[in-house]
């Protein structure tokens, strides 16, 4: 298989007060694949996401997207190049309608510049096309009936769907999903997985963070394992997930405990931690 990487990162380092949260020697994401980023809590997955997408600064390293060096670029410019992320805690725009949430996601809108905003003739056409596309996507994500509702009225799972659909409005090359399945019920998790597969099938690249190894196994083409900020190993899901080093890194001393239990506990702890950070 010839290599056609969409994302290449070298020696990316990010520390917080003496602790190296991220210290990734090398990472590539192949075009048209689904790559899962797994690792125990605190492995630095979200921090790596933040650094690569420009939401956090790196202390060192270089990374390029689609052949362009994007090291240190501001987040919005990285997004414009076609590398669009979602967040662990959904960030829907609560007091806008579901349709407005989608429209804000559209790229290349002439009416978004102050100069043209006052002349509707300059943006009416593009907007109408965006509305059509938004409705299409909403139907695909089973949100069609909700188009006119405020996003704040959506359930947690629907917010996940809306966020993914909104990212698609931006027509990204690489979709980066930060724990898309965290805290959703099994049925919805299944449907999110289907959406992820569909993204790849329509030619996009997906990089996603996940805790549940079963889910990872069923959907991803490649798996990257992180622990203590570094990439421990990467490869096809079957081989990687059988690697004793991975099991060790992931499960630590809890070899005999049921995997699901640990994950459930980890997730619960992480959610609690996040809540604290949010209020903070």
């Amino acid at each position: 298989m010839t290599s056609d990487p969409v994302l290449v990162a070298e020696r990316v380092v990010r520390g917080f007060g003496g602790v190296r949260a991220v210290d990734v020697e090398h990472l590539t994401v192949e075009r048209g694949t689904i790559t899962a980023l797994i690792g125990p809590n605190g492995a630095g997955k979200t921090t790596l996401f933040n650094v690569l997408t420009g939401f956090d600064r790196a202390d060192g390293g270089r990374w390029s997207f689609d052949g362009t060096d994007v090291t240190g670029l501001p987040a919005h410019r990285i997004a414009r190049l076609g590398m669009v992320r979602t967040f662990q805690l959904t960030r829907v725009l609560g007091r806008l309608t579901v349709l407005e949430n989608m429209l804000v996601g559209a790229r290349h809108q002439p009416g978004e510049t102050l100069r043209r905003a006052l002349v509707p003739a300059l943006w009416k056409g593009k907007r109408a096309a965006d509305v059509d596309r938004a409705r299409e996507l909403l139907d695909r994500f089973a949100l069609g009936a909700k188009a006119g509702d405020h996003a704040a009225s959506l359930s947690g799972g629907q917010r996940k769907l809306l966020e993914m659909a909104r990212a698609l409005m931006n027509e990204p090359t690489l979709v980066m999903l930060d724990e898309p399945m965290a805290g959703v019920n099994p049925a919805l998790a299944r449907s999110l997985l289907d959406h992820i597969t569909a993204l790849r099938d329509e030619g996009r690249t997906v990089l996603f963070v996940e805790h549940d190894l079963h889910l990872v196994k069923s959907v991803s083409d490649r798996v990257v394992v992180m622990a203590q900020g570094a990439v421990v190993t990467e490869g096809a899901p079957d081989t990687v997930l059988r690697d004793p080093a991975v099991v060790d890194a992931y499960l630590g001393a809890h070899h005999d405990t049921d995997l699901r239990e640990i994950i459930a506990r980890e997730t619960a702890r992480e959610t609690a931690g996040e809540t604290a950070e949010e209020t903070g």
Partner: peptide, 28 residues
């Protein structure tokens, strides 16, 4: 007139969550 334009919608989006808008490529 400004607030009914796409420019206005971006402003309202920023009010709701600026990180979300940044992730969608808007220069917040």
């Amino acid at each position: 007139a400004l607030m009914r334009s796409p420019w206005g919608l971006v402003l309202k989006g920023i009010r709701e969550d600026e990180h979300a808008l940044t992730s969608l490529g808007k220069n917040v």
